[in-house]
Each structure stands twice: as structure tokens, then as C-alpha cells.
Design a protein around this nucleic acid. Structure first.
Lengths: 205, 205
DNA sequence: CCACCCTTCGACCAATTGGTCAAAATCTTG
DNA sequence: CAAGATTTTGACCAATTGGTCGAAGGGTGG
């Protein structure tokens, strides 16, 4: 296996970008190799020269997303201040939803479909990581630094809320009359989410 | 237009049920008329005798969902106790996620895809209703009965969190090692969500 | 029991689409 | 610059699938 040439890296990257958009907007079955190739600026057979099959592209894109997905949670630090750590984590996830909404939506589609490709990842690396961080949360609660809340449900609540701004962007856009386009919406949303969730986990005096 | 016969009602209902499952599990493009017809216990041409096209089935199923979707929010009562009203609303939405997860997932798929069919509904009836309820929330905040939180983001947070348990069931199942199957999971989840969100909106003494 | 209408379906069609192949074009390197 | 390797594509194939059609089956009122 030789190292990939510049042209290989470029083309694979272009295909990945195009595939992310197509899969995210139309779903696995709705996306076509032709459309992805077109968006990536090449012919269909040429795309299939770089990826064995449609499913291979899909797997490849999902793999990238999964890596981005894990990293923010990994940095949750047991030794730091609990509320500040959660604030940082929530802010980071809100940022990711704003910056790469298609990635979030593609991930969501895969899970909604029953995670046929990602099941192993979810039951393996992700579960391990969540178990680990749940232990940290439990310790914080035991020390009285967080209100007593099931740590798994707290994590789910954070995921749900932050990813909602990417996954349901169409709904938010419609209901607010296009607010997300306005300057400042992102930080307002983050403030509101922080206020609700952090308010809900701060220990009551 | 005559009133539908018993056989018409039965078949239409069977088709709707089957379509809900198929569309929810495989997405619009992944579902096939053949599979829906099979699950509904009839042949493809027979199904097309009851619904003009694939899209007609899809629209019909979405319409049903939309009605179920609106009703819980409509009952939010300005005269009742704010915290109790929110508790009731959240509990009801958690119940719906547990009872009809496929409906929630199908709705989510449609929104993720950019709401091509539901855009009018979102910008119309839903926006009107949300605006109305946001006004109630604002009044509660002005009276000091709720912490000062943007009412739209509060509603989004509730939707996000409650629907997450249906939409991301595969992920929750994998990460918790099958907890959702266990007796009591549903009420634990509801308790945790109530505790976080209500804790986050109770005015601080 | 007949005539009519509603229901059901086998056979078929056309369009889409994932994937193959061999040949042409382009690039790299000695 | 020549030779080999890499990249690109037009033409094509087979399977899937949304949808049509005409004929057969079945229930019902007269």
C-alpha cells in the first residue's frame, strides 16, 4: 500500500464532502452515486475508482463523523470544576451543531434508521466512553457539586438539546421565522441551553 | 364522494400502519410500495387502488402525525401553575415518545431532510401555536413564576429532549446496554428530564 | 339468481440507478 | 522522451421499483 498521491487525497476529500451533503440531505437511499460524483466534479465511474461502492462511501463518511463526535466528550475532566466543565462541553457541542450541521444530520439519520452501520461503534467505543464519564458525573454528585441526576440521562439531555439545533434546523427556522440567519442567534441559543441545563444541575443551596 | 365502506376503512388503516413502519425505519426513498403492501397484507396494485402514489401515502401518514403532534402543546394553560403545566407537558411528550416512537422518527426524518412536505405546516399552524404559547411563557416569566429563559429555546429544549428518547432509541439502547427494555426505564428517564428542565426554569429564591 | 359495482391482482412497462469494462487520456519517472 | 502506471470516462448491463392496465373475483341490492 503506497502513500496516496496529492490527486488521490484531493479527490477522496472532494468525494467525502459531496457525499456528506448528499447523504445528509437525501438519506442513504435518496442519495445517488451520480449526484455525489457530479458535486465532487467527476464522473460516476471515476468516483467508483476511489470507492468500491456506495456503501463504502457511506461508511467512510460516517467514520469521519464518529471521530469528531467522540472528541469533545473525551476531554471532560474529573479534576476541573463540574459546572465549568459542563458549560464548556455544552458550548462546544452547540458550536459543532452550528459549524457542521450536515454531519450531525447524517449521524442522526443513521441512528434513526436503527444504526445498521454504527451499532458496533455505539456498543463499543461510545458506550465505554460514556460509562467512564458517567462515573465522573456520579463522583461530582456524591461530592455535592452537582444536583442528584442520573448521569446517563444528563448526557442524553445534552446531546439531544445541542444536536437539535442542527438536526431540526428546518423546524427552528420555520417556527422562528428565519432567526438562525440573524447575527447573535447562535449565542442566544447557547445561553438559553446553558441556563436551562446548568440551572437544572446546579446543587440547590 | 360516498362514505367509505368498512373494507375501505380497514385497508386504509392497514396501509397507514404499514407505511408508518416502513417509512420510519427506511426513510422515504428506502421504503418501497411493495414492502408496504406486503406488510399491509395486499398486492402492490391493490395498495395503489387506495392511494394514488407513494408520495400520497407519505403525505397521508405525515398528516396524521402532525395532528398528534400539535395536541399536547395546545393544552398548555395560561391560568394553571407554570411548573405543573410544564411538568404535565413534558410527561405527556415522554409518554408519546415511548408509545409511538416510529411516528416521532418519521417526523424527524422529514425535518432532517429539510421538511419538503411539512414546511407549510411548520411555518403556518405550528408557528402560530408556538408564538401563542411563547407569549404565555413570557407572561409567567414577567410574573416571576419562571426563571428568565427565552421561551422559544425552552420549547425547543423540551422537544429535543423528549423526542430524543424515540428518535435516538438505537443509541440509547446501545449505550445503556438495553436499559429501555427494562421495567421502570421510562419513568426514570422522565424523572431525570423533569428534574433537569424544571430545575432549570424554576425561579431561584 | 342476475346485474352491477367495488375490490384484487398477474403481467407488463419505463425510468432510475448501482456497478462493470475496456479503451483513452494523463501523469510520473528513469 | 519513452514506458509504465495512474486516472478518467463513454457505453453498457442487470436489478429494482413506481406505476398502469385489463381482466378476474366477490359482495350486494333488486
Amino acid at each position: 500500500m503506497n502513500k496516496p498521491s496529492r490527486i488521490q487525497r484531493n479527490n477522496r476529500a472532494a468525494i467525502s464532502d459531496a457525499a456528506m451533503q448528499e447523504f445528509s440531505a437525501r438519506g442513504y437511499h435518496g442519495a445517488t452515486i451520480d449526484a455525489i460524483a457530479g458535486k465532487a466534479g467527476m464522473s460516476k465511474p471515476n468516483l467508483l475508482y476511489y470507492f468500491r461502492s456506495k456503501e463504502a462511501i457511506y461508511r467512510s463518511v460516517l467514520e469521519q463523523i464518529v471521530e469528531e463526535w467522540l472528541s469533545p466528550l473525551m476531554t471532560l475532566d474529573a479534576k476541573a470544576d463540574p459546572i465549568e466543565e459542563l458549560r464548556r462541553y455544552i458550548t462546544l457541542k452547540m458550536q459543532m451543531s452550528a459549524d457542521r450541521p450536515e454531519a450531525s444530520r447524517l449521524f442522526a439519520s443513521e441512528i434513526i434508521a436503527g444504526a445498521p452501520i454504527l451499532r458496533d461503534f455505539l456498543e463499543g467505543r461510545l458506550k465505554t466512553l460514556v460509562d467512564e464519564k458517567a462515573t465522573i458525573l456520579k463522583a461530582w454528585i456524591a461530592e455535592g457539586k452537582l444536583a442528584p441526576v442520573d448521569p446517563y440521562h444528563l448526557i442524553f439531555t445534552i446531546w439531544a438539546t445541542t444536536q437539535h439545533y442542527a438536526d431540526f434546523a428546518a423546524q427552528i427556522d420555520a417556527v422562528t421565522g428565519g432567526q438562525p440567519q440573524r447575527e447573535g442567534f447562535q449565542s442566544q441559543a447557547t445561553q438559553a441551553v446553558l441556563s436551562i441545563i446548568l440551572g437544572g444541575v446546579k446543587p440547590r443551596g
